[in-house]
Design a protein around this nucleic acid. Structure first.
Lengths: 205, 205
DNA sequence: ACACTTGCATACCCTGGGTATGGAAACAAG
DNA sequence: CTTGTTTCCATACCCAGGGTATGCAAGTGT
């Protein structure tokens, strides 16, 4: 590699490290992934790693953000393709659940992130990605007067929690393609609770 | 301590270790808790620890089960005190959310367990505790013809996921006591989606 | 051409999970 | 009450792996 500028070198190793970290964290999980292994996979040494990332946690955060951007891009695509708010939400649910079949996503986002980054940090980052899209969807429905929820943020969070659990359930199922319709149906049932004509949380029979 | 039988000694140190582990894991979290610290807190050494527990993970599992038993006992109490199925479920939601204000519970059950034990193991254990109670509640409602869900297991899981997220939200709120009513309301809204007269997951407007 | 900064490799430190060994106390058998 | 055996646990150690310190070569501003 003759005559590369500093910025080029820097960017090359950074992305190589980020990609290697993403691959290894997603395959083996956080604790089973050593920094030496990441550096080796990226073709550099730990010295380079610590020059660009301050800690293992920092490196993991990069991988986490990478995953967030992937799923967010998919969801925004879906949202853009469906002018009707509820249809967009329904399709978004399906796409999210299908996305949970990806082992790296589950490992990094659902299993390791809360523990490694802490709930606060995860929430912060997700607010700029997945939760932003979900919130936007609910907000749009509310603007059209088609949402009964008082607190959109809370609803988005709870719905997201339910979807994550459903995603794990789906992935663990012996035949995910068979289980998917049921999961989607039940998820949509929960979503429908937010519609204005739902029975609501009254304490009747 | 003059003349103690083997079983007594064994049981004493085991419970001491278990209690110490529970305390430290709950306060500092899994990675920040060293086995030396646990042993010291229990008044023994690592030798004793490894004689009774096979690994750090094993020790954590004991702490996790301890937490499961605590919340499960509370919920069964609630269930027993409310003859009406839906009222029991409503009260159960409130009690669970309030229980999330306990930092040890959040740390051990919500944050660390999935990562340390793996989702499968957590699910297995929760099936014998929290999820068993929730499932029983939903099953009871179904037996009375007051539940629309086709798959009770799936509904229980998703509801549980939503409640955990709500619990984290509650705990992080600057004034949990103020936030609690909203959280409970929204949780009940989701729960009401399972009632037979809810609008359902149809693809209407 | 010069000092100076950036990018990274090598070598090292040290916490902490896990193991191996040995001894003391309790139990079983004669 | 011995004597062999097992249970319980402390001491000492191993080593993987996250993080740090140092040094050097390749780029960079003047």
């Amino acid at each position: 590699m003759p005559r590369r500028t500093q910025a080029e070198r820097s960017e090359a190793t950074t992305t190589a490290l980020s990609a290697a970290a993403h691959a290894l964290f997603g395959r083996a999980g956080y604790p089973a992934t050593s920094l030496d292994a990441v550096a080796a996979e990226a073709g550099v040494t730990k010295g380079a790693l610590y020059h660009h990332f301050s800690s293992k946690r920092d490196l993991f955060e990069a991988a986490f953000i990478r995953e967030q951007e992937r799923i967010t891009a998919r969801l925004e695509e879906v949202a853009a393709g469906h002018p009707d708010v509820w249809q967009a939400l329904h399709q978004g649910i399906r796409v999210f659940l299908e996305h949970c079949l990806d082992a790296s996503f589950r490992r990094i986002v659902l299993l390791d992130a809360p523990h490694v980054l802490g709930w606060e940090a995860v929430r912060e980052i997700e607010y700029a990605h997945v939760l932003r899209v979900l919130r936007a969807g609910l907000e749009a429905a509310r603007a059209e007067g088609r949402l009964a929820t008082t607190d959109v943020t809370v609803s988005a969070h709870m719905l997201f929690g339910a979807l994550c659990e459903a995603g794990m359930l789906l992935a663990r199922h012996p035949s995910p393609s068979e289980a998917l319709p049921t999961l989607v149906r039940e998820a949509e049932r929960l979503l429908s609770a937010l519609k204005p004509d739902a029975v609501g949380p009254s304490l009747d029979g």
